[in-house]
Design a binder for these strands. Structure first.
Ligand SMILES: [Mn+2]
Ligand SMILES: [Mn+2]
Ligand SMILES: [Mn+2]
Ligand SMILES: [Mn+2]
Lengths: 225, 225
DNA sequence: TTTGAAGTTTAGGTTACTCTAAAAAAATAT
DNA sequence: ATATTTTTTTAGAGTAACCTAAACTTCAAA
């Protein structure tokens, strides 16, 4: 029996699939052209071109004007890229001592390196990690991905406690904001007060009291404890 | 003062510069279009296009019909890529337990990842290695590259001894040929006999006697001891 | 139910890189 | 010195990925 490792998809195709995967997690139905364009910082017309091509390659189901859904093949390809991205992020933080806010861009390039053997050895070398430095689950070799029950900090009610398990956006500025306040994966948070007017919160982290906007609270995932 | 890290060169440009660098080491004068085409397995017309472009970018000195030479800028760029290639090869062998014949292709991709910080941390993580798994010297952070005095095994005379310090071609089949005979970097070799007719050799390696063709002997570098 | 705005696709163009075929220059042989 | 071969460049064309502008759908407000 021969395991046929066929020619891989282009860097661009992989980035599109990854983006569509992430948008599918949020949106309920099909993913729209405009949403993809916005997330990828490109033009809707370019997206149209690409999803037509992805459709022809059976990576997405696409009906004109109706947006796209990943096919099984497309989803698997996306998950493979995400697995590589997150494993490389772990490598950069654990082995090369990068900060969690410095690794995203580099992983964005490394995720396209094309060798099954490489990624399986890297996985083993890192001890088969289950989460990346931002708390996101890493698909295993069979592309199965853990679903952890987490909620946005903004969904917590007053006087509830939680443990930070991840962030929503991995924007550099945001991650540095958290670093400065010593908030990271595993940090315990207590909601002292919520401003009903704008949804901003007063939270306790260790011995510090922080006042955070709703936008910040909507980007931190916690497990309620 | 601002260290301007400008947009890097394309994957294709980097590969051309690297190839030209390697050809310059061998050839005396300018590097010819055809030589580049052959090494890169592409057409002379494509090479012509590219070297014109590299010339415009001041990466090579180019006079039509006269071939090219790297400029300082071009040589530095080539050395940066070679440094990355060889450091990644060390990583793959030392940390991920790849064999020396398995790493070239993967490094060929990794060498284009674009982050000074990444490569300087990788360098430190590996303990600032001086040679890659094939015995080739790794340019340091200032792009200075060690020149080791080495000769081809085929240049040795009868009854001379040497230590294997590198290989010329890194062809997979060739490296596997060496592996099978337990010949690697550091292996001690004794030239027992040389066939004057075809230049083939009988050599002693540990307790084994091998009969090798001139072509093989021309691909093994040794330091005479 | 019309109509306008928003969303999406198509048409046509650009750039980077590649190719084949033909033309031009250089090197080699006679 | 001239003719032939080899090397190199140019001309013209294709593909992937992107763009702007124009045309076309869809959907929701009036
Ligand atoms: Mn990417
Ligand atoms: Mn991440
Ligand atoms: Mn390369
Ligand atoms: Mn090497």
């Amino acid at each position: 029996m021969y395991l046929c490792v066929m020619k891989q998809y282009s860097l661009s195709e992989e980035n599109y699939l990854k983006t569509i995967f992430h948008l599918e997690q949020i949106a309920d139905g099909n993913v729209s052209t405009n949403d993809i364009a916005e997330k990828m910082e490109t033009k809707a017309s370019s997206v149209s071109d690409m999803i037509r091509k992805l459709g022809e390659k059976n990576l997405v189901d696409y009906i004109k004007y109706q947006g796209v859904t990943l096919t099984d093949r497309g989803r698997k390809t996306a998950l493979r890229v995400i697995r590589k991205h997150r494993l490389w992020e772990v490598f950069l933080v654990e082995k090369l001592d990068f900060q969690w806010d410095e690794v995203h861009e580099i992983a964005e390039e490394l995720e396209h390196i094309e060798s099954e053997e490489l990624i399986s050895r890297l996985d083993a070398y890192l001890g088969h990690p289950e989460f990346d430095p931002h708390g996101d689950p890493i698909p295993d070799a069979n592309l199965r991905i853990a679903k952890i029950e987490k909620r946005l900090l903004s969904e917590l009610r007053i006087h509830q406690r939680g443990i930070c398990v991840g962030v929503h956006e991995s924007d550099n500025d945001f991650l540095q904001y958290l670093d400065k306040r010593q908030i990271g994966i595993g940090t315990k948070v207590f909601v002292e007060d919520i401003e009903t007017f704008d949804g901003s919160m007063t939270i306790l982290v260790d011995d510090n009291r922080y006042f955070i906007s709703k936008k910040i609270a909507e980007n931190i995932y916690v497990q309620i404890t």
